[in-house]
Nucleic acid binder design. Structure first.
Length: 699
DNA sequence: GAGCACTGC
């Protein structure tokens, strides 16, 4: 009874005025310390049942300066009135951290029922889901993973107590596959909707359906100004609320002349900022992992060469394949001065575009960018652009074409089928893909046996849809036990799912090529990848072994992670984990056959002219020079078709024509096969097979 | 004889 009363008193809105007053009072008393007598300390945290910490009040005071706070009541009313709501806010408005808390407060007012449903807030990127949820947990004075949590691939940091869950859009889509009405949620917030990821677009259409069937569910779509009216029109004319961004003075500097070597220019600029600018952290944008690691090393080296005349630095890389614990380092504080009163320390974050939007790193005041992102609203500071002003206006065209209009949809269609969407043609996409693209996807899934001839999901398709992989790869995995090699196919799938594991530094190309050749398997690149994985495990995942053999340890570690996830899914469907005896001559043959069972649509045939032609669509292709074959096989399967200086097929493996006829006769049905050399060869193979069967029957 | 990178499950 007593706790009930305390809880009611402690609701956020009641706390507001009083707490700020108390925080101010504490501040004027000399602030902060636990020894202070806080007159409001009797206020109890609604979630933990304990008094709020001093820090809570300090943070609350800061939160109240965010633009979004001035529209809190307006938001409550809009949310109450309408099932869906569009919220437009620029970076810096505080929407990502505050709106979910407002929603929580609104829901909490309506019902304090313990069996209440969760609030979901989606983000397009993992780092954002993780970092924002931590921030919100701190603001609410609760432990991350308890009342506030997050769920991303490989890491579920939530519990039965969780009431507010941040997750990636892809993760929510996964959840919808087992819970099509998303019944564990009462409110769904789609953040950064303007990014229009494939998952967001599918969620749009799905949620439109779900809202009809669940009058109790509410949807908040949050977006930057772009296309807000389009969202409004799409979501039944939902009310639109605008939140201004925080205005920060950001000075922008351009280079006078185009930079020849932007990496070198970036490093030079960072060093100069560190030497001459006022304290504040630095954020640098570069293009990729290798470049970032390289830049971090060089920055560290250059600054340590300067000795004591400059402050200490902490250089932190940030990119998606970095393990989460390393990504968290971007939130570490800048190092203190080495000597008392000496030059200030600085944190330097060197990042890909994952930090470009939707991520606020405290203390960043100097932004230094290359590329198309324009994070001007971060905080007061300076932005150094390593290109000319002219180039900024003329050359940097924002790419706004949604992913769904650019992608192969086989995987998306499989997901939609699993979600119970039968009529894809009439599915309410915000931007419908071309019908041919959908038809092509349906056809591929039918050939793979995931859909029957009526377009219905088969048992096989249902299992395939559970794997976070392309349908070809899931098919190969699901059938691999029939070829007695699921362990090996698991390893190959994992290796194909991570960034290229072969490192080839400019200064040691020859040594790197030699190292790669030692893993080479004459039958193809897939088997070479298998060799690398086996060698990595046999050497106990030793980092120095990786370094000496020019393989990227992070890629292998991540492959191992992916493999474990795939193993769990295999177990869920009682798919047997098995291997052919390594000494058997069938060991590699079985693996190659299993791969073909998934990739029979990605086959090329060597013509007498010496060129490869892809089957059915007859495109001239070349083996990518990174391949490790010592011969030109008559038939190959390939993992990727890359159009660069020529048409290349990359990651190729030798397979036999006979297998095509045995494993995928439905695809290699010559009745609808274009005239070509491959067709004539296949005709012979079919005749041979018939003869064989005749002989058998005669015996 | 070689275009790179990034995001998500």
């Amino acid at each position: 009874m007593g706790t009930e009363r305390k809880r009611k008193v402690s609701l956020f809105d009641v706390v507001d005025e009083a707490t700020v007053a108390s925080a101010k009072m504490n501040k004027s008393n000399g602030g902060g310390g636990a020894t202070n007598h806080n007159p409001m300390s009797s206020l109890i945290n609604r979630w933990t049942g304990k008094p709020y910490s001093q820090r809570y009040y300090e943070i609350l005071e800061k939160r109240k300066t965010l633009p979004v706070w001035h529209q809190k009541d307006e938001f409550f009313q809009a949310l109450k009135k309408s099932q869906s709501l569009i919220l437009v806010g620029e970076t810096g408005s505080g929407k990502t951290t505050q709106i979910p808390q407002f929603v929580l407060e609104a829901v909490d007012r309506e019902s304090s029922d313990k069996s209440r449903k969760m609030i979901a807030c989606t983000q397009p990127r993992r780092v954002a889901a993780m970092s924002v949820s931590r921030r919100v947990a701190e603001e609410m004075d609760v432990t991350i993973g308890e009342e506030v949590g997050y769920s991303i691939r490989f890491e579920d940091c939530s519990s039965a107590r969780t009431v507010l869950k941040y997750l990636t859009d892809g993760m929510l889509l996964r959840e919808a596959m087992t819970d099509p009405l998303l019944e564990r949620y009462s409110v769904i917030i789609l953040d950064e909707a303007h990014e229009r990821t494939l998952a967001t677009d599918v969620l749009f259409g799905l949620l439109k359906e779900v809202l009809k069937n669940r009058p109790d569910l509410k949807l908040v779509v949050m977006s930057a100004t772009l296309e807000a009216e389009k969202f409004q029109g799409y979501f039944f004319g939902a009310p639109l609320m605008k939140v201004p961004g925080r205005l920060h003075p950001v000075e922008i500097f351009y280079t006078e002349e185009p930079e020849r070597d932007y990496l070198e220019a970036a490093i030079r600029t960072v060093v100069q900022i560190h030497m001459y600018e006022t304290p504040g952290d630095i954020l640098v944008f570069l293009t990729g992992e290798e470049e970032i690691e390289d830049a971090c090393r060089k920055i560290n080296k250059e600054i340590s060469n300067l000795g004591d005349q400059v402050g200490p630095v902490k250089v932190v890389p940030l990119y998606s394949t970095l393990p989460p614990a390393m990504q968290q380092k971007i939130f570490d504080a800048a190092p203190p001065p080495t000597t008392e009163g000496g030059p200030a320390g600085r944190k330097i974050v060197v990042s890909t575009n994952i930090a470009e939007t939707s991520l606020t790193i405290d203390g960043i005041v100097l932004v230094h960018i290359r590329g198309q992102g324009v994070p001007e609203e971060l905080q007061p500071g300076k932005c150094f652009r390593l290109y000319t002003e002219k180039s900024f206006h003329n050359d940097l065209v924002p790419q706004t074409y949604p992913e769904i209009l650019r992608s192969n949809l086989a995987n998306t269609v499989l997901t939609l089928k699993k979600l119970g969407i039968d009529d894809l043609v009439h599915f309410d996409f915000m931007d419908p893909p071309a019908p041919e693209t959908l038809m092509r996807a349906l056809e591929v899934l039918n050939y793979l046996g995931a859909l029957d001839d009526d377009g219905n999901l088969t048992k096989l398709g249902e299992i395939m849809s559970e794997f976070p992989l392309d349908p070809q790869m899931s098919k190969m995995l699901v059938v691999s036990p029939e070829f007695n090699c699921s362990n090996e196919i698991l390893s190959i799938s994992a290796m194909l799912s991570v960034p290229n594991c072969f490192v080839r530094p400019r200064e040691a190309q020859k040594a790197a090529d030699e190292a790669k050749a030692r893993f080479g398997h004459i039958d193809g690149d897939h088997l070479t990848l298998l060799n690398v994985y086996h060698a990595y495990k046999q050497n106990n995942e030793d980092p120095s072994w990786c370094y000496e053999n020019f393989v990227n340890q992070r890629a292998l570690k991540s492959a191992d992670n992916v493999r474990q996830q795939l193993v769990r899914i295999m177990a869920r469907f009682n798919l047997k984990l098995c291997s052919t005896d390594f000494k058997s001559r069938d060991y590699y043959i079985n693996i190659r056959k299993a791969m073909l069972a998934g990739y029979f649509m990605q086959v090329a045939h060597l013509e007498r002219t010496g060129h490869y032609l892809t089957v059915k669509d007859n495109q001239v292709v070349h083996l990518h020079p990174s391949n490790c074959l010592d011969h030109k096989p008559e038939w190959v399967i390939y993992n990727e078709y890359v159009l660069t200086s020529r048409n290349f097929i990359r990651t190729v493996t030798d397979i036999r024509g006979e297998w095509l006829v045995d494993i995928a006769p439905h695809y290699y049905d010559l009745a609808n096969f274009p005239q070509c050399e491959a067709k004539r060869v296949l005709e012979k193979l079919y005749r041979k097979r018939e003869d064989k069967e005749d002989n058998k029957n005669r015996k």
